[in-house]
């Protein structure tokens, strides 16, 4: 094990070159919808048990299933209303189980990026050949569904190995969502090729907000609005990226949906907000920012 990840250089946000978004926007808003499938009876390998209660945990399984039966359709309605295309963080087996969801996502021009096969199969402690097989399966499934190679990666249930980031670059992913250390994209040190992180979010991630911090439905909406107001102000100096990460089984509940709805109404009432997918943000950064930032901060 490493005592320090060693994957990025330290760089204070106030010392970096100014980043300029397309059309001089102050902020790129990136909405992620986690389209997930949890297995009822997954094989067990690691210390983490997908369902810590009794086996089978039909209550916990059904709670996640709510997202696919009901919640995701509500999330689509809300994002449509505000002209937002989500990036879907996809457990690729969902394409096989519930193609209606992936088809409806594709019709909307949403980006598909990889989030493992199932949310109940973890990467940690995986031998390299197996990890490669998982990554290749993800790529092949997304290509089969969309005709396009995926640009982004979020490890299933946020489980990684020490080599995951190197493999992503080798497989020509352009961005990872597994790092939470910034309000701007940033170069990641990998063995070959180029990889950047785009600031994904735990703080504005409904799972964390609702299941770890145990906040109420409405408070999430207040958090989103407050986060936006600060990043929007700072974005006048240098561009900021703001992620809202959704899980339809949570935010799509009838007692929670309006929190998202009202927060998006607030955000989209502002000028200078670029409604972008992760892939678009990564392409902008790689083309317009990467070299200058890498030079300025000493990234090799």
């Amino acid at each position: 094990m490493l005592c320090d990840p060693g994957r990025w250089v330290y760089s204070a946000i106030v010392d970096r070159p100014r980043l300029t978004l397309p059309n001089d926007a102050r902020l790129a808003l990136w909405v992620v919808s986690n389209h997930e499938f949890y297995e009822l009876d997954p094989p067990l390998r690691n210390v983490r048990r997908p369902w810590p209660r009794v086996q089978p945990d039909t209550l916990a399984y059904g709670y996640r299933d709510y997202g696919n039966r009901v919640g995701v359709w509500r999330v689509m309605d809300v994002l449509d209303r505000y002209g937002i295309r989500a990036s879907i963080s996809l457990n690729v087996a969902l394409c096989d189980h519930h193609p209606e969801i992936t088809e409806a996502s594709l019709e909307r021009g949403w980006e598909f990026y990889c989030h493992g096969i199932y949310n109940t199969r973890y990467l940690f402690e995986m031998p390299e050949a197996e990890e490669r097989a998982v990554i290749e399966d993800c790529i092949e499934t997304v290509v089969r569904e969309t005709g396009r190679r995926p640009a982004g990666w979020l490890s299933p249930a946020l489980t990684n190995t020490e080599r995951t980031l190197d493999l992503l670059a080798e497989y020509r992913f352009t961005y990872t969502c597994d790092l939470f250390h910034d309000d701007q994209p940033f170069p990641v040190r990998v063995k070959s090729g180029r990889l950047i992180s785009i600031p994904y979010t735990l703080e504005l991630n409904d799972v964390i907000v609702y299941n770890s911090f145990l906040y109420t439905g409405r408070h999430y909406g207040e958090m989103i609005r407050d986060q936006f107001d600060v990043l929007y102000r700072e974005g006048a100096e240098s561009a900021r990226v703001m992620c809202i990460s959704l899980h339809p089984y949570l935010v799509g509940q009838p007692n929670k949906l309006h929190a998202l709805d009202q927060a998006l109404a607030h955000i989209t009432s502002h000028e200078g907000v670029w409604l972008a997918t992760g892939e678009e943000i990564a392409a902008w950064y790689l083309e317009c920012c990467y070299d200058e930032v890498a030079r300025a901060v000493g990234h090799e």
Binding site: D96, Y118, R121
Partner: peptide, 17 residues
């Protein structure tokens, strides 16, 4: 290896309930 096998990766659910 069952960890990389997905026998119930199919249309619908991974159960018949």
């Amino acid at each position: 290896d069952p960890y990389l096998a997905y026998p119930l990766r199919r249309r619908g659910y991974d159960h018949d309930r």
